[in-house]
Design a protein around this nucleic acid. Structure first.
Lengths: 346, 346
DNA sequence: ATGAAAGCGCTAACAG
DNA sequence: CTGTTAGCGCTTTCAT
């Protein structure tokens, strides 16, 4: 009698008077494909249930050289946008019997390499990158590809490589935001972008320009401000807005995300403007808090939870070798959520 | 020559012309305690470095029956408070060569059991609970204890059990907040508490009463409102504040956390009050966004990152059997951060 | 100081 | 339909 060790196939085999092999076969044979007598099957299953058998994942992985956990590298855990994505990833993977190992870069961008090292050391079966930026180390992606470790991106694609990814339609999102402002009568519409390294910046810029063009509003570079810092906190929106305020400010504003919007609003209010009378602002993401900002924020919603779920399922498919090329690139629809931060026009 | 498999001790042994045993000894012998000739040691180490050897954690765990990963069960991943704690956990554990498996309850409170199941199936070496509530299943804790799987709590203790935990001094935090308001001249000070299941509620209530008493302000139950819902979003603060507003509102308000504060402010503003002139409000936590609320929020800071780090280190110590009783209960100091949401008095 | 051998729990050929 | 055998990569006696 083992001390208080966990229950093994051995135990089941003994109690059911069958071999370990048979026990293993029964347990692993979900679809009843292997020919085992119903009697034996039932017996083994009953014993397994009775003793509360849980396969030892270390032994399984050692033997099969397959792991049921995968790595998740996320830009900033503290950002609610990523929090929601992680929730989605988690829900989907647990449902399929996989376990995400989450690691975040926080302010240490450029540490993608270190994170990947950790996941590789843990024999992650695949890696999910959310909002990461490969400033220096694109090489690690080739390395991963060589070693047959699947990767999927969320909200960020490395253009040169054909890697599965899921994202929201950024140009459409920015288009929606800008269009809303134009229809409200605004002509001097500011745009606060994230840093260049984030591909979404360029796409949102594009959507913004497209809306201007479509509605015959003159594009002017002086209405666009860009953050250079990668951290995505309200401070970014604050300082960008301050720069607008020091020259001649726009009457409306598209911001890179809800946190930027919060910061931008703060800056405007500090300079004596009121929202939305003096400045209409629209955010991006629709994080939970946005509905409670003062004023409640009109914003472009991204389906974060769903993005996380889809990405996790894609990665797991890739791990299991069933991911089809045509399902490898999914772009979700953004949705304009109208609240109070744009009022009824300038 | 193996196909493109990972490098094993075997490979090192061959290349260094030593036995696998020797290779293993050298690799595991950080402190040079085992008698191995310096020459052999150097040789093995050199080869290991050259081929980029990474031990296979599955084999290690299978053999030693010890795992280097532990579970983290967190109440709500989307909440920035927990995001910060997770960051701390992660930083500390990676530094010690451990890997946190994070799972969250989100809105499914009462699913602690399912989460724990998952972690046990993965052979987690220990479990960290952050902000979780054991409404139904306190039994799983006994189970864990029986099976010798260490547990530590963050921000929440199950009173009956002597389980290591780290938290902020909640009564002091609430005291600080209330005292600040009293010193500003307020007498009708509202308190919005979280649900009963969260032990911090009772503690903060205590701190609030203590401050009132110390400064000779009459305590009145009608100034306290409590949320019943476990989800900690701005909506909770919003509805609680609305209840105050329908009777006679206080002139100042202590809220359960910054998100509650955001919601409460929104409710007050909707009813035509201005902050801080008509209502002074103080939050709790000091999440990153709090500095950018309108007005910037005066709040009680919790050292979330540090709490995460400390807890992770405690758990790892417990896993390794070196956690001392006297270091098992740590209460950190809260700190009042004064910004604009309380103005200069009523 | 070094190595041979055994075995952790599981799965996969291969027999029977 | 079932069992025997072997081995994944590692650590751990126990010899030498």
């Amino acid at each position: 009698m083992r001390k208080s060790m966990s229950i093994t196939l051995q135990d089941i085999a003994e109690q059911a008077h069958v071999s370990v092999t048979t026990a293993s076969k029964v347990i692993n044979d979900k679809a009843s494909e292997i020919r085992i007598s119903p009697k034996t099957r039932d017996l083994v299953l009953t014993v397994a249930k009775r003793v509360g058998y849980k396969p030892n994942p270390f032994a399984q992985s050692l033997r099969t050289k397959k792991s049921r956990s995968f790595g998740v590298v996320v830009a900033e855990m503290r950002n609610p946008y990523f929090g929601a994505i992680i929730s989605g990833i988690e829900q989907a993977s647990i449902a399929r019997g996989y376990y995400p190992l989450i690691s975040s870069l926080e302010n240490n961008f450029g540490e993608e390499k270190a994170c990947v090292e950790v996941h590789r050391a843990n024999r992650a079966a695949g890696i999910l990158f959310a909002g990461t930026v490969f400033r220096l180390e694109e090489g690690i992606l080739h390395q991963l590809a060589e070693d047959n470790i699947p990767v999927v991106f969320i909200g960020n694609k490395v253009e040169a490589l054909r890697i599965p990814y899921v994202d929201v339609d950024n140009v459409k999102g920015a288009f929606l935001a800008t269009e809303h402002l134009i229809k409200l009568g605004h002509r001097r519409i500011g745009l606060i972008l994230g840093p260049d390294e984030i591909p979404a910046s360029a796409k949102r810029w594009k959507g913004y320009k497209r809306a201007l063009e479509e509605y015959g509003v003159q594009y002017d570079k002086r209405w666009v401000e860009q953050e250079t810092q990668l951290r995505s906190d309200p401070g970014s929106g604050y300082s960008a807005m301050m720069r607008f305020l020091e020259r001649d400010p726009p009457t409306a504003l598209c911001t890179f995300n809800d946190q930027y919007a919060l910061g931008a609003i703060r800056a405007a209010v500090e300079k004596g403007l009121t929202i939305p009378q003096d400045l209409a602002v629209v955010g991006f993401d629709n994080i939970a808090a946005a509905a409670y900002y003062s004023p409640p924020l009109t914003t472009v919603e991204q389906p974060m939870l769903e993005m996380g779920k889809i990405a996790a399922n894609m990665l797991i498919d890739a791990i299991e070798g069933t991911l089809k090329e045509e399902r490898s690139f999914v772009i979700l629809e953004p949705k304009l959520i109208i609240r109070k931060s744009c009022g009824a026009g300038p």
